[in-house]
Nucleic acid binder design. Structure first.
Length: 441
DNA sequence: TCTGGGGTCCTAGGACCC
DNA sequence: TCTGGGGTCCTAGGACCC
């Protein structure tokens, strides 16, 4: 059996851990640029706030309904995620961290007749130890575990746990086909056109037909709905096959100079990501684009890809390549709203074949990058950077007006607990936790 | 006024080889 | 008039996920 553990409205829940007064209130967390909603509390959902809804459409609700709005605080969420995942590893021999707020647990070797108490235990432990509410879905396959989790989440009066051990046909009849994992909008439309409306219908469709229209991936989903495991647990995180850094700008950029700085920042970030997993890239793509939503203004967008004679992860080379691309694709007279750098053709650094005719010394660049990463790790990002980059953090390029403190990852933001007394010093659970927090002066 | 970012997998079709 | 067969590799585009 497989369990899917998923934190309820993860980003919102992270904010609530450190600000308990937010409980019971409508709360949303915004995308990178304070552009649109990416996480909603149940109360916010009840106000009909949609996923991806732009901020300007819901501004009125701040006053009218007491809506609380946060910019996204990725350092905080990343750290909270790591804490939650570490707890989950206590409950299963192997765990797949599927996303920042979800994990699959392999419960196969656990000799419990009824997995419900185990699932409840998982839920209670995560809640007590890191303050995050989770729901647990248990079933024979990943696709069914996803469905079980969804049922647990929808049942607001339930205990946050749903086990589908057998006879799930009736359950599948209540699940719309578009709500099945890996059946997106396009596939759902296609399937409905053929009369396949529910997960049950898909489970009982013809294999060959499914294979033809939904590819091998779709066939696996169908088999999993029948209870036959086809998608394995990925317990170790594979190296990424591509990395990218893209942003929308708070204020559109017009000049080549300004775009050059931004692309240099993005290339440098990509270099860091590459070096973290010890890879090098053979290809670099950079793109720029005007605001696609703006009506009646001239639109332009372009991208171009360059290849390196020897795969690299040197920020110097990546920045240079990004500048080269910009020179090729930049056109004057447009307001650019969006740009990015993407790296592909990644290979492990140890496999890189150095060429005699390389224009730069691979060795020297490697040593320089180690030194640069070392300094930046110790004294903060961008302490040492390439001259082509934006001076400082580049924060002025994006908007983050509602940012909460980095409670767990910055010394200056850490909360101080003023504790006058403690009833049970030896309990791992602190019932007085939240109410005693205050911000460091 | 104002609309995110970062990934994965699969397939068809073209280029190329012998 | 007549024009092979079999294979690999690469890429673009389309679908999906959180």
């Amino acid at each position: 059996m497989i369990a899917l553990v998923d934190v309820n409205c993860f980003y919102v829940s992270c904010e609530r851990v450190f600000c308990p007064a937010l409980r019971g209130l409508p709360v949303v967390v915004l995308s990178n640029n304070d552009g649109c909603v990416v996480a909603r509390s149940d109360e916010a959902k009840a106000l009909q706030i949609g996923m991806g809804q732009p901020l300007f459409e819901i501004r009125g609700m701040v006053k009218k309904h007491g809506l609380k709005v946060f910019s996204s605080n990725y350092p905080l969420y990343g750290d909270m995620s790591a804490r939650a995942m570490n707890i989950l590893r206590r409950f299963a021999p192997s765990v797949e961290v599927y996303s920042v707020d979800e994990a699959f647990l392999d419960l196969e070797d656990l000799a419990f007749a009824d997995l419900t108490p185990h699932a409840l235990n998982i839920r209670q432990t995560v809640l007590r130890w890191v303050g995050l509410p989770v729901c647990v879905g248990v079933a024979p396959t990943k696709v069914l575990a996803k469905i079980a989790n969804r049922i647990a989440k929808k049942d607001k009066l339930g205990n946050g746990v749903c086990v589908l051990a057998d006879n799930w046909d009736a359950v599948l009849q209540d699940v719309e086909v578009g709500d099945v994992w890996c059946i997106g909008r396009q596939y759902a439309n296609l399937l409905r056109g053929y009369g396949i409306k529910t997960a049950y219908d898909l489970a009982h469709a013809d294999d060959t037909w499914v294979r033809k229209h939904l590819t091998i991936t779709g066939l696996r989903i169908k088999k999993e709905l029948e209870g036959e495991p086809c998608i394995r647990l990925e317990t170790e995180t594979p190296d990424k096959k591509s990395v990218g850094t893209t942003r929308s700008f708070r204020d559109p950029l017009r000049t080549k100079d300004a775009l050059g700085k931004a692309l240099a920042d993005f290339a440098a970030r990509c270099g860091e990501k590459l070096r973290r997993q010890q890879s090098s890239a053979a290809l670099l793509t950079a793109f720029i684009h005007t605001n696609r939503f703006a009506k009646g203004v001239p639109q332009y967008g372009a991208s171009f890809t360059v290849s390196f004679s020897t795969p690299t992860n040197s920020t110097l080379q990546l920045v240079k390549a990004a500048q080269y691309v910009l020179n090729k694709i930049y056109r004057e007279g447009y307001d650019y709203k969006n740009a990015g750098v993407l790296l592909s053709g990644l290979t492990p650094q140890s496999n890189v074949q150095i060429s005699l005719f390389d224009p730069v010394s691979y060795e020297k660049h490697q040593r320089l990058m180690v030194a640069m990463d070392g300094v930046n790790a110790r004294y903060g990002r961008n302490t040492v950077q390439v001259a082509a980059q934006t001076i400082g953090t580049g924060a002025q390029l994006t908007r983050q007006t509602q940012l909460s403190p980095c409670y767990t990852t910055k010394w200056d933001d850490m909360l101080v607990a003023h504790v006058g007394f403690a009833r049970d010093l030896y309990s791992p659970y602190s019932s007085v936790r939240a109410e005693l927090y205050s911000k460091r002066p």
